[in-house]
Design a binder for these strands. Sequence first.
DNA 1: GCGACAG
DNA 2: ATCTTGTCGC
Length: 226
Amino acid sequence: MKPQIITHSWNLSEEQALQLQHELATQVITEDCLGEVKNIAGVDVAYDKTSDKIIAAVVVIDAKTLEIIEQSTAENTAQFPYIPSLFSFRELPAVIEALKNLQITPDLIVCDGQGLAHPRRFGLACHLGVLFDIPTIGCGKTRLMGEYCEPEKNRGAMTPLIDNHEIIGCTLRTQDSIKPVYVSIGNRVSLATACAWILKLSTKYRLPETTRAADHLVRQKLTIKG
DNA sequence: GCGACAG
DNA sequence: ATCTTGTCGC
């Protein structure tokens, strides 16, 4: 990866993590600030069922054909507990390692989790986007927060996710009559652009092909090792 | 005080 | 996240 990675210590207390989120949240860019998107990366993490081992996978696909171009994985040990709203401090260390091993610098990264739809407007997608200064989108399977409003049943239907009279993301139905996904800005993309990409990437299933590909790879690596 | 709570 | 078979519905 070409970009200069501005990382920080991950050996933090809960209080320090909260403090860091407040500081880094200032750096999130919520407007479209990206060039032509030729390739898109999907990231996902899997946990070993008995140990505290975690595996992260990054899969880069061609934005037009959706074919896999490159992929990378990294193994790590969970050093931070699972605390809703501090999720990134648990998963990002492994994800970053996997990204560092990539030859290609993704034009866009789709994360498995929230972006701005977060208590301090700094979910995992924002965190990754700011550290790498790369456009990112948060696409979660379930909701963390925000007032939910049921979207129409057709593919492409969406409703805004609201918190404190503020639009923090939106629900997006990626296939007819299936449960919607939760899309929010990660970094350097507008909400409209984020939704458009998630819909375009969700050609046949509920989740975008990027996260499906990363999920498959991560599960494969997990079972091969045991 | 009682829920809710990304993966 | 992970543990897990069949089953209801489009």
